[in-house]
Amino acid sequence: MTTTTAPMEMIVPSFGSDAESGRKLAVICSKGALDMAYPGLILGNAALGEGVELDLFFTFWGFDMITKSRMYDLKFSPVGNTATHMPAALSPLPGVTAMATHSLKKSLADLNIPEVPDFLDLLKDSGARLWACRLSADMNHLKEEDLYDGVDGIISASDFIEMTDGSQLLFI
């Protein structure tokens, strides 16, 4: 049997499935404001979806994102945030932060973006590792039982630097 025309090569996308890509991302979450909690979560989620390993390190104000008593109640304040285009004199008024927080939460919910605790669940389900900063835990007198259940451990800054050898690093 011979064929007269050469078979056309099938175009197959490269998903890097044969070899481990080895790409790793480490995100340091240092802010506890609602609007600053999301960038790390969204980029981390995107990385996981691309087969990139992810370590998140929660430190200073970012510790609120994984503290059980606070993670459900992060706030967005327009004070000092010129990007809200709100007159500067209005932003510190009573009720403005609550209003802005409510409005941001609604915009995110409308786009099917989960709230912070649910987002952490999503990242865990996708294979993320979550690390709590030792110094932040000590400063706030918090122990593992005070933290989100998916936290993999309370570690020092040196531990984090050591374990993210070769990772790309993002500070938020």
Partner: peptide, 24 residues
């Protein structure tokens, strides 16, 4: 992926198991 888990009823962990590495 988020929509497949919330609307399609297949959770995220399963999606990563079914379509490893780059599920979406």
């Amino acid at each position: 992926l988020r929509r497949v888990s919330t609307e399609g009823g297949v959770d995220t962990k399963t999606l990563f198991a079914l379509f490893p590495k780059k599920p979406a």
